[in-house]
C-alpha cells in the first residue's frame, strides 16, 4: 500500500503537467483529524482549495480554522503534542508522505502570520533571507532583483526604496505585515497561507493589504484565516465556515453569505454565535 502510494507520487512529480488541478484544487483535505494531546481540534474535515483564488476560513475563535491552516504547510510539526491524521494533498501529493521534504513543502507553501514578525535585520535582509537559504539567487545582482521585485509585488517598494538597509522592525505595523508578505513571495511559492494577517492593523492598513491580496491572486493561491466576516466577503471567492472543529459549510463566498444552507452558518453570519 505504502509503496504504491509513494510510487504514484513519484510518477506524478515526474509529470506535473498531467495533473488535472481544475477538478481537484491545488490543496485538498480528506477526512482530516487533528489532536492536541487528547484534545481533538479538528473533526473529519474535507474540502478543496482552488488554484489562483482566495479562500477564506472563518468561524468563531477556537473553532480550529488556524489549526487546519497550519496543517497545509505542516507548521503543526513544530508542536510536539500535535497529531494530524487523514489525507492532505498539495498538487495531488500527500504532504504527510515520508518522501515529502517539509523544507521543500514550506518553500512551495508560504505563510504570513497574525502578528507581523519581521526579523531584527534590515528590510533587504528580511526579504533576501528566503532566497538565500534556498539558494534561489545565482548572483548578488540576481538576489537584489528578487528582493526588489518581491517588495514591488507586496506594494512596499515605493515606501522603502531609499532605506532598504534600515531595520525592518522600524516600519509601521501595516508596512511590517507587507514586508512579511514580500518575504514570503521572495521564495516564489505557489500558495500563501495567511493567518489573520490584518487582525492587529488599522482599517487603512487593512485596506491596503486587501487590495494587495486582490492583485496577488493571479499569481498565487491564497488561503486566509480571518475573524472578520466582512473581510471574507470582500476579498474571497470561496469561504469555509468552521465551528468547534467541524467544517460546517464550504462553498462560493457569495452563496455562503447570502444563502447559507446550514443553520449554524446562518446563526454565525447573523451574529447569534461567535
Amino acid at each position: 500500500m505504502v509503496m504504491g502510494s509513494i510510487m504514484k507520487i513519484q510518477k506524478e512529480t515526474a509529470e506535473p503537467a498531467n495533473l488535472s488541478l481544475a477538478s481537484s484544487g491545488i490543496l485538498s483535505a480528506q477526512n482530516v483529524d487533528v489532536f492536541y494531546g487528547d484534545q481533538q481540534a479538528i473533526n473529519n474535515v474535507s474540502f478543496e482549495i482552488p488554484e489562483n483564488q482566495i479562500t477564506a476560513l472563518i468561524g468563531p475563535s477556537g473553532c480550529g480554522k488556524s489549526t487546519i491552516l497550519r496543517c497545509f504547510n505542516r507548521m503543526n510539526d513544530t508542536i510536539d503534542i500535535c497529531k494530524v491524521t487523514g489525507d492532505i494533498r498539495f498538487a495531488g501529493q500527500n504532504i504527510y508522505d515520508p518522501k515529502v521534504d517539509v523544507v521543500a513543502l514550506r518553500a512551495r507553501i508560504g505563510m504570513v502570520f497574525q502578528k507581523a514578525n519581521p526579523f531584527p535585520k534590515s528590510i533587504f535582509e528580511n526579504v533576501a533571507y528566503g532566497p538565500r537559504i534556498h539558494g534561489l539567487a545565482s548572483s548578488k545582482d540576481h538576489l537584489e532583483e528578487i528582493v526588489i521585485s518581491s517588495l514591488k509585488r507586496a506594494g512596499l517598494y515605493k515606501e522603502v526604496a531609499d532605506r532598504l538597509q534600515e531595520s525592518g522592525t522600524g516600519l509601521s505595523g501595516g508596512q511590517q505585515q507587507r514586508l512579511c508578505i514580500a518575504r514570503a513571495i521572495a521564495v516564489d511559492p505557489q500558495v500563501i497561507l495567511m493567518d489573520e494577517p490584518c487582525s492587529s492593523l488599522d482599517p487603512i492598513a487593512t485596506a491596503i493589504i486587501e487590495e494587495l491580496m486582490e492583485s496577488m491572486k493571479q499569481n498565487y493561491t491564497i488561503v486566509i484565516v480571518t475573524h472578520s466576516m466582512q473581510q471574507a466577503a470582500r476579498i474571497s471567492q470561496k469561504t469555509a465556515f468552521f465551528h468547534l472543529g467541524d467544517l460546517v459549510e464550504f462553498g462560493d463566498t457569495e452563496a455562503i453569505f447570502t444563502n447559507p444552507i446550514q443553520t449554524r452558518t446562518q446563526n454565525y453570519i447573523s451574529g447569534r454565535i461567535g
Partner: peptide
C-alpha cells in the same frame, strides 16, 4: 516564538 515560525514557515531548517 513568532520569529522561529516566520523562519520555519519560509522553509528554513
Amino acid at each position: 516564538k513568532t520569529m522561529r515560525e516566520a523562519s520555519l514557515g519560509l522553509g528554513a531548517t
